[in-house]
Write a protein that binds this DNA or RNA. Sequence first.
DNA 1: AAGTGCCTCATACTTTAGTAGGGATCTTCG
DNA 2: CGAAGATCCCTACTAAAGTATGAGGCACTT
Lengths: 143, 143
Amino acid sequence: MGRWTTMVLYGLVLAAVVATLKYVEYRFMVKSLSTEVYIGVVAALFTGVGLWLGSKLITAKKVVQVAPAAVVDHQAIRSSGLSARELEVLQLMAEGLSNQEIANKLFISLPTVKSHSSSLFTKLEVKRRTEAVHRAKSLRIIA
Amino acid sequence: MGRWTTMVLYGLVLAAVVATLKYVEYRFMVKSLSTEVYIGVVAALFTGVGLWLGSKLITAKKVVQVAPAAVVDHQAIRSSGLSARELEVLQLMAEGLSNQEIANKLFISLPTVKSHSSSLFTKLEVKRRTEAVHRAKSLRIIA
DNA sequence: AAGTGCCTCATACTTTAGTAGGGATCTTCG
DNA sequence: CGAAGATCCCTACTAAAGTATGAGGCACTT
């Protein structure tokens, strides 16, 4: 349900309640209904309306707030000691690319990619690319 | 803030508002304030209270609902066509283990691991283990 | 009973990954 | 300036990974 639709409904409910109260008052001439009772009823009613409104308007915000939790920890990246290029190579590794494909994508030679890989492995203290990817993800260095 | 604390606060706010209205009425003898205006003010106030209440009572539920989102999609696993053993090998691959380490951990030979790997790659339509891991994660076959 | 899929293992081979050990610019910083 | 780090590239080698092919045993289904 859209925000505007909800707002319009809110207005309609308010109008309806006021009309109903006036109608009841007119029908039964119950002037004895004290203001306190009126207030109590209306307060309770609109607390409910507020709750309902809240569930419609607030929920969406909370959900999108929680879902995209920070995927990477920039502090972790800095303290990892990885250079910009090494990080790029690592990210492409994580996407399953071979060294040759990484070389093509970055317009550098295969030996260069291997060079970056090796130094990257040393810095992450691993021996294989799959291990590097796993470790980097647990450290939130990559998504 | 606890649920009970919130409820008590709600009661106190209600009491305070009623008291304030009566006080204002008493102080200024403004009998001219129509019931409609009263109702309007109270309705608006308690809609606000309801909204606030909602943010306190509902948010927690929503959060725990979203956070532990299903990490693996069992339906995706079934429709992937992977056998139990292939899935095991895949999971260990994702943890960065070498074929030899996987063989040791599962008490099978290296050729057997390679055999599982190859058929697993075919089923996932990939060529490398890193690619397999990446694809399996995007399909929610593994965590 | 024959067929199918799974798990296991093997050998032989090709390809990719990773290591070792260099060297060449270029920028930045003390 | 000189040192350090980053980037780029190379050769040569070893170690894994991956492919191809075949085969035996087991369980389940038709």
